[in-house]
């Protein structure tokens, strides 16, 4: 993964690009952008059930099918009349997360010993995605996305003041 800061910034920019004005809608997109990384709860369980077992057990949370199901579960904790809209927004955020992760070297799995990527489509298809575009520990995505978000916020504020 790039760090969650980058994921949040990108989700915020996506919400602006989609012209989403309401803060609660924007919030759901941002929630979606960090959603797949809930699989890291394996770190809590690995001392008890073993490193590889914990990792494999929670791995579906970082895959398309797992995200679709766990996202539906999360959205069920909102008002029923908004489920469809919120689910779409959550999936936009989660999709941006998986897409960004696909540009990294395979760090998403941490101890993923070898291979070329994440099996996003497991168990439907055993295809590895990831392109080795940037190392995950790089600060560059966080710095660039942070600067863009700050600039956009300032610009919007300036335009609003001068309107």
């Amino acid at each position: 993964m790039p760090d969650l800061f980058t994921h949040i910034c990108v989700a915020y920019l996506i919400s602006l690009a989609l012209n989403i004005k309401e803060s609660h809608h924007r919030n759901i997109i941002i929630a979606g952008s960090i959603f797949p990384d809930f699989w890291k709860i394996y770190m809590i369980f690995s001392p008890f059930i073993g490193y590889y077992t914990a990792k494999n057990f929670f791995a579906p949370l970082h895959m398309v099918l797992g995200v679709l199901i766990s996202g539906a579960l999360f959205i069920s904790f909102f008002e029923k009349s908004y489920w469809r809209k919120y689910y779409m927004l959550l999936m936009i955020g989660a999709g941006s997360h998986l897409l960004l992760d696909a540009f990294l070297y395979p760090y998403g799995w941490y101890g993923w010993p070898m291979g070329d990527g994440i099996w996003f489509l497991w168990p439907l298809l055993n295809i590895e995605f990831q392109h080795g575009f940037i190392w995950p520990e790089s600060y560059l995505p966080a710095v660039v996305s942070g600067i863009i978000v700050c600039a956009v916020i300032l610009l919007r504020k300036y335009r609003f003041v001068n309107r």
Binding site: Y52, T53, N56, F57, P60, G66, L73, W122, P123
Partner: peptide, 17 residues
């Protein structure tokens, strides 16, 4: 979701090297 977790745990994709 639990079934999906169990499926992945029983057919591990992250294994010892």
């Amino acid at each position: 979701l639990l079934l999906l977790f169990l499926q992945c745990a029983r057919n591990p994709i992250i294994t010892e090297m």
